[in-house]
Design a protein around this nucleic acid. Structure first.
Lengths: 159, 159
DNA sequence: GAAGTATAATTGGAATTGAAACCATTTCTA
DNA sequence: TAGAAATGGTTTCAATTCCAATTATACTTC
């Protein structure tokens, strides 16, 4: 019988529940205050930061699914927070940018984001913060070269 | 105009994309090898670790929704990996436990889990690992007393 | 011990998500 | 430069997830 590790000690599990708890808490805040979903919020954050972008660029920068980006953009446009203008270089896409109202909301949103980040990590020393960032980066780095030189096991007849 | 932080620097965002990447990779592995979803895997891990439990106890230990637990249990039972026996103390619930087959699979699954954990963190020193655990715990700790003594902002007419 | 309240499990339906198909335009290549 | 392949965006459909209502049993209290 192998050493059977309790779920609570399994690091990917801890990572998952922590992330879910944080995301949930933040999502709740954005929804309550601005009626924005997380994808919508992310798009606004990026647009406010970089100016007009195509959806393609938005998917790249937010690491979200292109469908999610598309839907978020549609909602933002309907709410008058973002607007599309034709892309002269490529007729398939548009440039998306925040409207006046969108910029105004962005001006409210970012301080809230920073404030939440601050409160979330207020017990942390600057060193710990740096470590945390670095460790997250490192995990993502490991994932790159994680691929299927894998462990072979009986697959229990699953196709 | 406030200092508008790029999304990529926002720590909750980094946490989220890292966790999603890790979870996705692991989920893929369990599905491919055992045909198990993450909830199903978690239930098996806990049952294999602690022996028979009610769904109530499972929800507590996995931090999952009770519906998710219920459905995971149903699937495991249908596949003959877990079985329910009546709970003498409480007629509303059952005790769930792994069957022989379930234990056999558990014996395959846990080494895979540990191997993935190992590979995911193989670049890490023991100190870094300890830090990472501690930091995740600390974040969850902060979340407890995060509540609504909050920042007041215009809510843009959202109810 | 009957009535009301609480709790474990389950079910049904609504919202969210993601994969694949699809359309329009652009880029490549012969 | 015509035809083929690729790409940005959108839509559709199926799976998953999440919430609210339901059922059955247990607990409380009068």
């Amino acid at each position: 019988m192998q050493p059977t590790i309790p779920l609570a000690k399994f690091l990917p599990y801890q990572l998952s529940i922590t992330s879910n708890a944080v995301s949930g808490r933040i999502a709740q805040e954005y929804r309550a205050r601005f009626g924005l979903s997380v994808p919508e919020w992310r798009v606004m954050a990026v647009l406010g930061d970089s100016g007009a972008l195509t959806q393609r660029e938005l998917t790249k920068r937010t690491l979200m699914d292109k469908v999610a980006v598309n839907r978020a953009c549609k909602v933002l446009e309907e709410r008058g927070l973002a607007a599309r203008t034709p892309n002269a270089q490529d007729g398939r896409s548009h440039h998306l940018d925040l409207t006046e109202a969108g910029q105004a909301m962005h001006g409210q949103i970012m301080p809230l984001a920073l404030e939440m980040e601050r409160r979330l990590f207020e017990g942390f020393t600057p060193e710990e913060l740096g470590q945390f960032r670095a460790l997250l980066d490192k995990v993502r780095g490991q994932l790159e070269d994680f691929d299927d030189d894998g462990i072979e096991t009986d697959n229990y007849g699953v196709k």
